[in-house]
Design a protein around this nucleic acid. Sequence first.
DNA 1: TTAAAAAGTTAGATTAATCTAACAAATTTA
DNA 2: TAAATTTGTTAGATTAATCTAACTTTTTAA
Lengths: 215, 215
Amino acid sequence: MTLTEENYLKALHRLSQSEEPITVKRIAMQLGIKMPTVTSMVRNLAAKKLIRYEKYKAIEMTEKGRRQALLILRKHRLTELFLKDVMGLGWEEVHDIAEQIEHIQSDRFFNRIDEMLGHPKFDPHGEPIPDANGKLPFFKAFPLSGCEAGKKYKLTGVLDHDGGFLTYLNTLGLTLGSSIEVIEVHGFDRSMEVLLNGKTRTVFSFIVCQHLLVI
Amino acid sequence: MTLTEENYLKALHRLSQSEEPITVKRIAMQLGIKMPTVTSMVRNLAAKKLIRYEKYKAIEMTEKGRRQALLILRKHRLTELFLKDVMGLGWEEVHDIAEQIEHIQSDRFFNRIDEMLGHPKFDPHGEPIPDANGKLPFFKAFPLSGCEAGKKYKLTGVLDHDGGFLTYLNTLGLTLGSSIEVIEVHGFDRSMEVLLNGKTRTVFSFIVCQHLLVI
DNA sequence: TTAAAAAGTTAGATTAATCTAACAAATTTA
DNA sequence: TAAATTTGTTAGATTAATCTAACTTTTTAA
């Protein structure tokens, strides 16, 4: 596959996540190119059985196409985590670099990254990381705000990457993988009494709970 | 610069290291492509002032072209070291991956690699690593076998990457950056009495000395 | 010193990815 | 439902990087 084809597959996969059908127009907007360019590329991708395409009809990904897209997504998400956790780069700068590294062809390289990160299942946005076969786990991380009192969860991601919020989590000793036990949920402001890592007891406002992704 | 242009510059730089003039034929062989392809590309590179080119004459790199080539070489060599020392991949497998990663566009990424490696000046083949401005140090590492008694050197690379040799160096506590003081050189077998890191005293055979690169 | 060989160039074709202009189909709306 | 709008396709051009075939220049060697 060429680099361009890989980028189309990624865009296609992203578009398939919404309810709207995948159209030539949407692909063109997603990639910032013109519609005729898309028309010719979808014919090419269809010839390679990566998508199903009929003139004037909505486009669908095939199982093969989805698998390829997820393998690229896996490389992208593992790379982002690696750049951040191993190389110490900031969240705001990792995306553009991962966008380039995701096209590197080397199983050894990405498997080693996966190992060094301890085979993570989610990226810090709470998005699941596809496995080496391009398969996704059935479940997805959800915000702590929807959780029940008396249950225990694991922090897998955050939805606010602002310095302030992350610093706040750090002072609580809360990192990816930490346990969060919900002791009580206060109805009046939807704040939560929580026990962190079985040690620290504190209160999370509803806003905070909305930004913490757990499984 | 396109990926292809970067690869031409790398090839050009490598060819410029030998005594032979740089010809269309040699470039074509180096890159495994046909001569007419090279002819058109050298016209392009000349238009960009990266090389000097006149029909039927030998090709020369300009200062600008050399600088670009060295910046790519810097990325390549830093990447190789990183893959090996930080990610634990083997010497035999790092080249192909570095060949791809050297084209990543991100100063942050490579500067961070440089930092994590402690700003290495040489790769383990004894080849100097160009600095962030595409400048090479004036000197190059040389084998210990040519060194004088009574002087102190720093280990910067090895020419034998066999497991056995490296294990031998490890048991002596010798790593990149270690100091080696030559106490005496025995004329009859050209072996050397040495003091390692100011502590361990031992004897290196001529063969060993030939495989240790120092400055 | 000229003929043969090697090296280099030109011309023209090909492929991937893009574009604009013009036309066609599908959808929305009056 | 017919006109207007939106969406999609075709046709043909462009650019980068490559090729083959044919021709030219330079070098080597008889």
